[in-house]
Design a protein around this nucleic acid. Structure first.
Lengths: 236, 236
DNA sequence: ACGTATATTATGTGCAGACATATTAAATTC
DNA sequence: GAATTTAATATGTCTGCACATAATATACGT
């Protein structure tokens, strides 16, 4: 570790974060190894312990460090970085490209979900579930076909929502922000969806599966199928 | 706004964050509108202003709030949520599935990048660029074919790295963590890549394009093509 | 030697106070 | 009325101190 390059002259938490980041880059702290503790780093940088804590917390939030009380702080073997989604994803995407966005409700029904959906949402058996199919367009051209299941036991209010006017995604984003979930990307052939997306059944399409939870309660499972050649862009 | 439900009895920043989250859910604060300022919220919750600041900062980092000095804090019209990637993504994925991971360097050369790559990396003209093709396997089965361009002007040290032993991704994650970038998912037919991925040329495959930057300098542009049926999973 | 209890320690949090900074509002000048 | 200057304000940061908490180390008992 290079001690001579301390940042004594400038003691903002950002400068400490940057200095620590540089050391991580240079492998001064090997992946998996402990870094010096906060009190020692505060001495080295000539600032308060709370300031070091603030800097290290940012690095931990960004996925570079693992922090444990008493155990100390380690450089992660594999950084866990985050990518940003803007939600509502589809409307924002379409409008950002300068196109006119339109949403069309295709089907809405209370329905018993098939086993694959029950498994995704970890349903026990008695839950009421809403099944919604919709099409999202850009300049009157099909952009994304959505097949979505919403657990009414978790978000009963959506039952009173006019889903002709408001897409379930927009409503959920506003009224049922998830606490955690998963998102999967896969490539499939359009198949039966080609009639919605107006393409060839053999065309490759990007599909996104999303499951969201509110604490321990499942909110929704959505399968979004995009038109061929569509690219889903995330910011890193 | 519901003032009677203050959290006077429990004043951790987490409880304040949760209380504010509940209000956002309930639309007590409309999207785009200002919420009460920190001093007022501190009075309401019966805690220090710094504690409110800590809670709101978390909500801002999570994408629900926009904060500006003097201007105040607004509920975002569209939340910007984050998804988590574990990097090195491929090795972690393969090993998490219980398979044996293997990396094979296919090609490595200094080369003039084509216009499409120059554009992705915003290259001016004189930059030295390394071109690396590699195959990543799971239990001896091709899992991902990677075609990657690395800007040597940004990360010259990689030139001395034995890329037979170490995948460029692993090296870059360790030595050149990006400050920002973009990631795109798309569905394509395998085409010429089918000979690497050992599949039919018409098979749909998931492709991920990633461009990363170190401040204003481009690091790398990678096109990763996954074997058919592969699902890229992110945590929300 | 092993299991349990106690002590220690590194990070996490809350607070009060002061100061910094970016932004908006108000006052002043032309 | 428009432009410029000054004042006010809401968030951002730093500090020192105290306390909390989770985890590891040490001590004690069998």
């Amino acid at each position: 570790m290079v001690k001579g390059e301390s940042s004594v002259g400038s003691v903002s938490w950002q400068s400490i974060r940057d200095a620590m980041m540089a050391r991580i880059r240079a492998q001064d702290y090997a992946p998996g190894e402990l870094i010096p503790n906060e009190v020692d780093l505060a001495t080295e940088f000539g600032c308060a312990r709370a300031t070091v804590n603030r800097a290290l917390r940012d690095l931990a939030t960004s996925g570079f460090l693992d922090r444990r009380r008493k155990a100390g702080t380690r450089v992660r073997e594999a950084p866990r970085r985050k990518a940003t989604l803007a939600i509502p994803l589809t409307r924002a995407e379409v409008e950002a490209s300068g196109a006119r966005y339109e949403y069309r409700l295709l089907e809405r029904m209370g329905e018993t979900p098939p086993p694959s959906v029950r498994e995704k949402l970890k349903l026990a058996g008695k839950e009421r579930v809403l099944h919604v199919k919709s099409l999202h367009l850009a300049d009157n051209v099909p952009h994304m076909f959505e097949d979505r299941w919403i657990v009414l036991d978790t978000v009963p209010e959506i039952e009173a929502v006019d889903l002709v006017k408001t897409s379930p995604n927009v409503w959920l984003v506003r009224h049922a922000p998830y606490t955690h979930g998963t998102m999967e990307f896969l490539a499939e052939t359009a198949g039966a969806r080609s009639k919605h997306l107006i393409c060839a059944p053999d065309d490759p399409i990007l599909t996104m599966l999303r499951v969201t939870w509110l604490d321990a309660s499942p909110i929704t499972f959505a399968r979004q199928s995009f038109s061929p050649s569509h690219r889903m862009r995330l910011e890193l």
